[in-house]
């Protein structure tokens, strides 16, 4: 079960950690703005949403899947919560409704993948489109939903507050890291998830209930996405649903993959996501400070993602004799 680390002496994880540290040092030494405590705190805050989503993505990849609907879930269910709250529903009920919506989307993902045997990439891609289309046309009035209703102060504190000077989103990121780490490392379902990701056929033969486990896996992913959405919404007081159509989900994949979570499943853990988040956070923050245009940022991120995938395929080479047929 402990085949979760690459055997290579120079693992991708270490390389990425080193690059992140180098970049950090470079920005730290050359950019005065970067050095400020405010900037470092905002760096952490900005990146924590990405990190939380990355944890969800990591969970789906470890179980030999991928969840392309996680950003859509984040945007659509949190937008619905705001809309419900605006229409006069108590905030608690609105949150519950959003949670149930996200769980439902996760279960649809899981059912398509586990029972209808649709490849995870397509199932989640189609569900993302459906989720966006249905919620946007049936439940929302506009693309951009502002929180207009009077809500209890604790709601704003979720994303806006701070404890001991550390912004709450960062603490929440740490909390999700801890919970997911405990789940993956010590919970039976978590251990089974690695087994399923490593070799689904063998897991099934040994008696692991792959299908319910897949449902659980995608439900958790969706709940993580919903949580990230609520943190974001409470921080800025609005939700822009068009984020669901953006390339943000690829940033999330980037965070997970670049940290060393093997796309073939069964490998990696929370630590990899933290390292990936650190690199991407430093990079995004640095590029913003350098005033790099958005499209150029996209190109740079994409090239880095490409390099990460190349490194992944060199460190975890595909064997012609044992690779899965039809694995795209």
């Amino acid at each position: 079960m402990m085949a979760t680390r690459t055997r290579s002496p120079l693992s991708q994880e270490m390389i990425v950690a080193a690059i992140a540290a180098l970049l950090f040092m470079a920005f730290f030494l050359t950019q005065p703005v970067f050095r400020t405590t405010d900037n470092l705190l905002s760096l952490l805050q900005n990146v924590s949403i990405l990190g939380i989503l990355g944890l969800g993505m990591a969970l789906s990849i470890i179980g030999r899947g991928i969840d392309l609907s996680i950003v859509t879930v984040m945007a659509m269910s949190s937008a619905w919560v705001l809309q419900l709250a605006n229409s006069g529903l108590p905030l608690g009920l609105a949150l519950l409704a959003g949670l149930l919506l996200s769980i439902a989307v996760g279960l649809v993902n899981g059912a398509l993948i586990a029972f209808l045997e649709v490849p995870a990439i397509f199932a989640t891609l189609a569900v993302a489109t459906l989720n966006y289309g249905v919620v946007r046309t049936a439940l929302l009035d506009d693309n951009l939903v502002y929180l207009k209703a009077e809500v209890p102060g604790w709601f704003h504190a979720i994303g806006g507050g701070a404890l001991f000077g550390i912004p709450n989103p960062v603490l929440l990121f740490a909390l999700v890291c801890l919970l997911l780490h405990l789940f993956l490392r010590y919970d039976i379902a978590g251990r089974f998830l690695y087994a399923m990701g490593e070799n689904p056929a063998a897991a099934r033969i040994t008696g692991i209930a792959n299908r319910p486990l897949t449902l659980l896996q995608y439900a958790i992913c969706s709940v993580i996405g919903f949580g990230a959405g609520m943190i974001l919404a409470s921080t800025i007081g609005s939700v822009e649903t068009r984020i669901a159509r953006s390339t943000m989900v690829y940033d999330v994949i980037l965070v997970a993959v670049i940290g060393g979570i093997g796309l073939s499943g069964g490998k990696g853990g929370v630590r990899n996501v933290i390292i990936g988040t650190a690199l991407i956070g430093v990079l995004l923050n640095g590029m913003t400070i350098l005033n790099t245009p958005y499209t150029v940022q996209n190109i740079i991120k994409s090239v880095i993602l490409m390099l990460a995938i190349v490194a992944d395929s060199i460190l975890n080479p595909r064997d012609e004799q044992t690779s899965q047929q039809g694995d795209i």
Binding site: I121, T247, Y250, T295, S302, M306, V310, S313, I328
Partner: peptide
């Protein structure tokens, strides 16, 4: 990338999609 370096088709072409799209957007500007 996919044939010779044996990368995964879905993610690789996704990345080239974003890169090419960004380049076109830059030029269009």
């Amino acid at each position: 990338l996919i044939g010779y370096l044996k990368l995964r088709a879905f993610l690789t072409t996704l990345v080239t999609m974003i890169i090419v799209k960004s380049v076109v957007d830059l030029l269009l500007l």
